[in-house]
Design a protein around this nucleic acid. Structure first.
Length: 463
RNA sequence: UCCUCGGUAGCUCAGCGGUAGAGCGGUCGGCUGUUAACCGAUUGGUCGUAGGUUCGAAUCCCACCCGGGGAGCCA
């Protein structure tokens, strides 16, 4: 007999085939003379209905053991189901119980649980319908990202997780050290002497692989990073994690328009791929989590993204028939309520806003003519806000040096970054995408802690 | 970090100065095709923690801890 996954059986299984299935019991319904058990092995949302007749050996012992959560192996014959919920089911000949799950203490019930509660049993929550679907979709997103870039000839590069420069100046950093924190070496002025630390200077967990991506793009033209990044910011929201995954493509010989084109093509590709690969899971989300996600996916795939400049966006907001909590004027950073208005109320689809004032954007973004704005872009998505942020990078050495000076960043740490402009510089552009926010966007899940298997947030790193 | 709402049975919640409640779950029994099965019975509590007010506190006051939502920061 062949061991098969539930997803395969539900899709391809034929009556009279003999199979073995291994998985976890989701629910058991006992009747007089026989029982129904639903077995799930993570391969699909739906489980396989197993019919256990009281005639099999040790029936009474076995049926007592297979409570919700128990792990079992069932051998038997596939048959057409007499019931209405499924086409095919497994008529058990033999049942092996690997591990019981005491019904009095096993925390997962057959009925719905709140996500808040499931976070307290993080090690078990992946066995639920919703989290199971989330992590299958998350996997599909990962595959889609690699496939998209590989098909286009991008090289996946591994940017370092430990860095010694805080170049972006974005948020708080986690320090990496092997000092004995109870006995820190001090220098003559009483400050911590980092020359004695592992790297001979302060080191941190990376907040972005972009600068290293630029290095590699100057050799391989088109590259992307896809890996974990870290922020020590004390952010307590449904959209922030201390450890999250980021996707950062970087393209040589590319301008802001090419960057926007890639971002739009990229999002469309991911949505198409997930819809084609996980239709059951997506329908589940559409039915139980957020009734708009199928329409949103359709909207993304079949419509062109709106593209406006920051200056135009400000004009629109100033003329909007709506009162904002934060007043609008040229020069402000767009607030959540402004982004929401543009993406959700006005365009009702993703909007790419470009050419922001240089004062509110990073030093490495290319200075536009007139020197008031930079070639930055943000993709604002309905329900999520900023999902992609990118820019054309400043490739002119003199301008970049000036910008570094203006923003007060320590230029010495960036000597290698400046060398890229000294030797064979080219126009180039890229963007960053928060991977978990993408998964949120696709699944409609409200809280970012529920789209990553082991969320890291302030005061939470138990599992 | 700020604003705001909350913490009562394993879960979801009601009770808001006078003997601690419901539904679900669990357990036991019934049922020959169930689908979050159904029917009957039953079980279950240091009311987040520590102070205070009061004859009496789950309920009012204070501090702290934890969680949700929103904001800031950002991805």
């Amino acid at each position: 007999m062949e061991t098969r996954r539930v997803a395969d059986i539900l899709k391809n299984g034929q009556p009279e085939e003999t199979v073995i299935v291994k998985g976890w019991v989701r629910t058991k319904r006992e009747l007089k003379g026989f029982s129904f058990t639903e077995v799930n092995d993570g391969s699909s949302l739906a489980g396989l209905q197993v019919v256990i007749d009281s005639g099999i050996s040790d029936y009474d012992t076995i049926i007592k053991k297979i409570n919700t959560g128990a792990s079992i192996e069932v051998g038997g014959k596939l048959v057409s189901s007499q019931g209405k919920g499924q086409k095919i089911e497994l008529q058990a000949d033999s049942v092996i119980v690997y591990g019981e799950a005491d019904a009095e203490t096993y925390p997962l019930q057959k009925k719905r649980h709140s996500f808040e509660f499931l976070r307290t049993i993080n090690h078990l929550r992946s066995r639920t319908n919703t989290l199971g679907a989330v992590f299958r979709v998350r996997n599909a997103c990962s595959v889609a990202i690699h496939q998209f870039f590989q098909e286009k000839g991008f090289m996946w590069i591994h940017s370092p997780i430990i860095t010694a420069s805080d170049c972006e100046g974005a948020g708080e950093l986690f320090t990496v050290t092997n000092f004995d924190l109870n006995n820190l070496p001090k220098n003559a002025t009483g400050e911590v002497d980092y020359s004695q630390d592992f790297f001979g200077k302060p080191a941190y967990l990376t907040v972005s692989g972009q600068l290293q991506a630029e290095v590699m793009a100057m050799a391989f033209q088109n590259v992307y990073t896809f890996g974990p990044t870290f922020r020590a910011e004390n952010s307590n929201t449904s959209r922030h994690l201390a450890e999250f995954w980021m996707v950062e493509p970087e393209m040589a010989f590319c301008d802001l328009e090419g960057d926007q084109n890639l971002a739009e093509e990229f999002l469309k590709y991911i949505f198409k791929y997930v819809l084609a690969t996980c239709p059951e899971d997506i329908e589940f989300f559409n039915k139980w989590i957020n009734k708009t996600i199928l329409a949103t996916a359709d909207n993304i795939i079949n419509n062109e993204f709106a593209r406006i400049t920051y200056t135009k966006a400000i004009e629109i907001l100033e003329g909007a028939d709506k009162k904002f909590q934060f007043p609008v004027e040229w020069g402000i950073d767009l607030q959540s309520e402004h982004e929401r208005y543009l993406a959700e109320e006005l365009f009702k689809k993703p909007v790419i806003v470009t050419n922001y004032p240089k004062e509110i954007k990073a030093f490495y973004m290319r200075l536009d003519e007139g020197e008031k704005t930079v070639s930055a872009m943000d993709v604002l998505a309905p329900g999520i806000g900023e999902i992609i942020g990118g820019s054309q990078r400043e490739e002119r050495l003199d301008v970049l040096e000036r910008r570094i000076q203006e923003t007060g960043i320590e230029a010495d740490d960036l000597w290698w970054y400046l060398d890229l402009r000294r030797y064979g510089t080219v126009p180039h552009a890229g963007f960053g995408l928060g991977f978990e926010r993408l998964v949120q966007f696709i699944t409609g899940m409200n809280n970012i802690r529920d789209v990553i298997p082991f969320p890291r947030t302030p005061l939470n790193a138990e599992f």
